[in-house]
């Protein structure tokens, strides 16, 4: 028990991200409303972003914006700065997420225009399957 608790405390961010991921994932595959699926998708993606950002954290590290002249003269202490690489990756991931959301919402409107509903089961009924 102690061990598990210690593990949770040491890695609570990972636990949190898994929980969020599960919420999003469940919404994506379990919910019947198409908007809900998209919201779930966004939650899923933010969960992944949270995970990546967590990997970049260093205890006691500052933000990855330095003072140019200071660095050029004195160098920099690596331990003082958090890892910038995951941030870069996640900027890209956020853009991708919002792009997909945009496309999906456009398609959603077309679906509504075509079938008059956003409930998956009602649409399937109308399609006749």
């Amino acid at each position: 028990m102690e061990g598990i608790l210690a593990e949770i405390v040491a890695k609570y961010n990972y636990w949190l991200y898994v929980v969020l991921m599960m919420i999003g994932f469940y919404a994506m595959i379990g919910k019947r409303n198409l908007v809900k699926k998209l919201l779930g998708m966004n939650i899923f993606q933010t969960a992944i972003i949270l995970f990546f950002v967590s990997t970049g954290v260093k205890r006691g590290g500052g933000i990855p914006i330095l003072d140019k002249y200071k660095v050029l003269e004195h160098g920099v202490d690596v331990a003082q700065v958090v890892n910038p690489l995951p941030h870069v990756l996640m900027l890209t991931a956020i853009v991708v997420a919002v792009s997909i959301t945009g496309v999906a919402l456009a398609i959603l409107q077309r679906i509504y225009r075509e079938y008059g509903t956003l409930e998956e089961d009602e649409i399937l009924e109308k399609v006749g399957e």
Binding site: P64, L66, V81, H87, L91
Partner: peptide
């Protein structure tokens, strides 16, 4: 990441590492 933190400013003159 240490490579970026140590060299980025020197190699690109951009203080915002990201």
């Amino acid at each position: 990441s240490p490579y970026y933190i140590e060299n980025a400013v020197e190699q690109t003159h951009v203080p915002n590492l990201v």
